[in-house]
Simulated assay, not measured.
Amino acid sequence: MVALPGIAAADVQNIVLVHGANVDGTTWRGVYDRLTARDFNVTITQLPLTSVEDDVAAVHRNLDVQDGPVLLVGHSYGGVVISQAGIDPDVKGLVYIAAFQPDTGESGGALLAATSTEFTPDKLTVFDDGHYLVDEDAFMSLVGNGLSEEDALFVARSQAMSNTAILEHEVDAPAWSEKPSWAAIATEDRTISPELQRRMSVRAGSTVIEIENGHMLPMTSPDEVAELIAQAAEAVE
Rank of each mutant, 00 (worst) to 15 (best):
V2T: 14
G6T: 12
A8K: 13
A8P: 09
Q13S: 10
I15R: 07
V18W: 02
H19C: 06
G20D: 06
A21G: 15
V23W: 00
D24E: 07
G25V: 09
T26V: 11
T26M: 07
V31N: 06
V31L: 01
Y32Q: 09
L35H: 02
T36D: 00
T36S: 00
R38M: 01
N41E: 05
I44S: 01
I44C: 03
L49I: 03
L49F: 00
S51Q: 04
S51T: 14
D54N: 15
A57G: 07
A58N: 08
A58S: 13
A58C: 07
H60T: 12
N62A: 04
D64H: 10
D64P: 01
P69L: 07
L72Y: 10
H75L: 08
S76V: 11
S76H: 07
Y77N: 06
Y77T: 05
Y77S: 04
V80P: 09
I82L: 05
Q84W: 02
Q84A: 15
A85N: 08
I87F: 04
D90W: 03
V95Q: 06
Y96W: 00
Y96P: 07
I97R: 04
Q101I: 15
D103V: 06
E106L: 07
L111W: 04
L112I: 10
S116D: 10
S116V: 11
F119M: 14
P121C: 08
F127E: 09
F127P: 04
F127R: 13
D128K: 13
D129E: 05
G130K: 05
Y132Q: 02
L142K: 12
V143L: 08
V143N: 09
V143K: 09
V143F: 01
G146L: 08
S148R: 12
E150Q: 15
E150N: 10
D151S: 14
D151L: 15
A152M: 10
L153F: 05
S158I: 05
Q159T: 11
Q159M: 10
L167T: 11
L167I: 02
L167Y: 13
E168L: 14
E170K: 15
E170H: 12
V171C: 08
D172P: 00
A173G: 04
A175V: 12
S177G: 08
E178Q: 14
S181E: 00
A183T: 14
A183P: 00
A183M: 13
I185E: 01
I185V: 15
I185G: 08
I185Y: 08
A186Q: 12
T187R: 09
T187F: 05
T191E: 09
T191H: 02
I192M: 05
S193R: 11
Q197Y: 04
S201D: 03
A204Q: 07
A204R: 11
G205W: 12
G205A: 04
G205P: 11
S206L: 03
V208G: 02
I211T: 06
I211Y: 05
G214E: 04
H215P: 10
H215T: 10
L217D: 02
P218K: 10
P218G: 09
P222D: 07
P222C: 04
D223M: 02
E224S: 15
L228N: 02
Q231K: 11
Q231G: 02
A232N: 00
E237V: 11
E237R: 14
E237A: 12
